[in-house]
Design a protein around this nucleic acid. Structure first.
Length: 311
DNA sequence: AAACTATCCTGGAGGC
DNA sequence: TGCCTCCAGGATAGTT
């Protein structure tokens, strides 16, 4: 479940191996991913320099320059990669032996002394290219909303997008047309932090709640990036190490446990209510929340969950 | 326009 | 041990 923090972590880890480097050799083992890998993509990548790695939403963009004269001209060429549900990269030292792909290895890139391998068990990931002047025009990005950690995501615009929508605020956070990069984990965590019930209709949120939610989304994403993302089931960091943010989950995958805020309140005052994180299925996805901190009926006071603990 | 639902895919967990 | 069913979920196509 790579979301923005996991993609960002992957990108930053890959940078030293790829940015400014020449692609010596590419092998593609699987064409059938979420989208068919273009014919001859590997061949067209070979001999080119990777000028820059960047990210848009949950997509990685590798900008290539140059290229073999004998190959039809695709310059400028960008490689678009999405990790889907289970996509991951690993880096191995080139050892002089022929590379033996492991199960679910779909692409191997030789770059200097390293081999960079894309592995994706569920094949929901994507490797595609874009040949055009401006990668912003790539069809994958056309309908995407603003980046949550940029100024492009403004309070007024966000509030306006929500105020006419009957659908739940949780669903809105997952809608990449509204704002990008948020998946199920961080939607749950941000709603908890903001004290907003996941089932609340988007239009029912007060202005101050939308403002708080924005701040919480940003705090959660920044904290997760600082921890190199979360490791849960499929996602792993390139080094094979695990990300650290799952240690900080307050509600996600914690059904039946008490949330940190209620636990703390208990310590200070044994008469304060016991909480028990609940799991519901919403739009086919699990939502986890604390029914005490995230009341469905409109809160009469500001949420008691502080954002500073993760900011 | 907006709100749903089905679909792609595999590994892992739990039941028996 | 093995067989079965269910679940995880990002994005999108299709339907109401």
């Amino acid at each position: 479940m790579p979301e923005l923090p996991e993609v960002e972590t992957t990108l930053q880890t890959l940078k030293p191996y790829l940015e400014g480097k020449l692609i010596d050799r590419v092998e593609i083992y699987t064409k059938k991913l979420r989208v068919m890998v273009p014919e001859n993509l590997g061949h067209r990548m070979e001999g080119r320099k990777i000028s820059r790695l960047s990210r848009r939403a949950k997509y990685m963009i590798w900008a290539l320059e140059g290229g073999a004269e004998t190959v039809e001209s695709f310059s400028p060429l960008a490689i678009i990669i999405h990790l889907g549900m289970s996509g991951r990269f690993r880096v191995e030292a080139k050892d002089g032996q022929a590379f033996q792909p492991l199960k679910h290895d779909h692409m191997m890139i030789e770059c200097g002394d390293s081999r960079i391998i894309f592995n994706d068990a569920r094949r929901f990931g994507l490797i595609d290219d874009y040949a055009g002047e401006s990668v912003e025009n790539c069809h994958y990005f056309k309908h995407l909303g603003p980046e949550p950690l940029s100024d492009a995501w403004g309070l007024g615009t966000f509030f306006d997008a929500l105020k006419s929508r009957q659908t739940s605020i949780k669903q809105m956070l997952l809608d990449q047309k509204i704002v990008v990069g948020i998946g199920n984990i961080y939607a749950n965590e941000a709603l908890y932090m903001a004290g907003i019930h996941p089932l609340r209709p988007a239009k029912s949120l007060e202005f101050y709640e939308v403002k708080s939610l924005m701040e919480c989304v940003r705090a959660v994403l920044r904290a997760a990036i600082a921890q190199s993302g979360s490791t849960l089931r499929d996602y792993r960091r390139i080094s094979g190490e695990i990300g650290g943010f799952q240690e900080h989950f307050q509600v996600y995958d914690r059904e039946g446990k008490s949330c940190p805020a209620c636990e703390k309140a208990q310590k200070n005052n044994p008469d304060s209510p016991h909480c028990c994180v609940q799991r519901i299925v919403q739009n086919g996805r699990s939502s986890f929340f604390c029914a005490i901190k995230q009341r469905y009926t409109r809160n009469t006071e500001l949420p008691g969950v502080v954002t500073s603990r993760l900011a």
